[in-house]
């Protein structure tokens, strides 16, 4: 197992964001983490990225707790726009390159080109769609082993969504890379999801292999998403 989560709890003032979460993720699979706003998806992603600390419980990635060595093998695309607005796209890529082993500057430039991003424009001046595409460029410019994508399509216009999904799944190294993706737009990524976890109020309410769940329940993942949410 590439990711092991055991009895994970996270408390914020006045609320528990995660309650006793336990699951594992296998290498080379696409795991969908689905749930409504406030279900704990982003908190879970932040803990897996090592930027939020669990209140209780264990998280092991590649068999160890999250250390800088582990972080160097994880590409994390948060829900928010996390890049320095005063940097140009080129400066941002040059800034991030030394941190991630195997960063390929040529691949980064090719992805920038494919995503139709202006290299010399400041990140703060990019549109929301362009910022979303930039996150994908950053995630796939180096051979990460785990990609954590928290709402990569949130608030992005349909043409940009199409371009992001196209890049995501053409760059994804099947069998080698593990993707954890959370999204509201389940129907747009349904065909790619292999395993799924449904979260509600910080707890897992349903999980399993996507095909098996579809077969057992006779419903698509997006229909199950609505069923779980209500």
């Amino acid at each position: 197992m590439i990711i092991e989560v055991e009895g994970l709890w996270k408390r914020y003032p006045g609320t528990w964001a995660l309650r006793d979460l336990s699951f594992t993720a296998k290498k080379g699979r696409v795991l969908g983490i689905l749930g409504e706003n406030g279900s704990g998806k982003s908190t879970l992603f932040r803990i897996l990225a090592g930027i939020t600390r669990p209140t209780r419980g264990k998280v092991r990635i590649f068999g160890t707790p999250i250390t800088p060595t582990v972080k160097a093998r994880i590409a994390y695309l948060p829900e928010v726009q996390p890049y320095y607005p005063w940097m140009t796209v080129r400066e941002l890529l040059e800034f991030l390159a030394p941190f991630y082993p195997g960063w390929d500057p040529q691949k980064a430039l090719n992805l920038v080109d494919f995503m139709q991003l202006p290299l010399e424009k400041k990140v703060g001046d990019l549109s929301k769609g362009q910022k979303g595409r930039l996150k994908v460029v950053v995630a796939f410019s180096w051979p990460s082993e785990i990609v954590l994508m928290d709402e990569p399509l949130g608030g992005i216009d349909p043409p940009s969504r199409k371009r992001i999904l196209g890049a995501l799944f053409s760059e994804f190294r099947y069998g080698e890379q593990t993707i954890l993706i959370s999204t509201h737009l389940v129907s747009e990524v349904e065909e790619f999801i292999e395993d799924v976890i449904y979260l509600k109020d910080g707890s897992i309410v349903l999980s399993g292999h996507a095909d098996q769940l579809r077969e057992e329940r006779g419903k698509s993942l997006s229909e199950l998403f609505e069923e779980v949410a209500t």
Binding site: A49, I51, T69, V80, L96
Partner: peptide
């Protein structure tokens, strides 16, 4: 404030 702490804390450094 500007959410860049997400990328800063996710960097593989102590």
């Amino acid at each position: 404030k500007s959410d860049t702490a997400y990328v800063l804390l996710a960097l593989p450094i102590r």
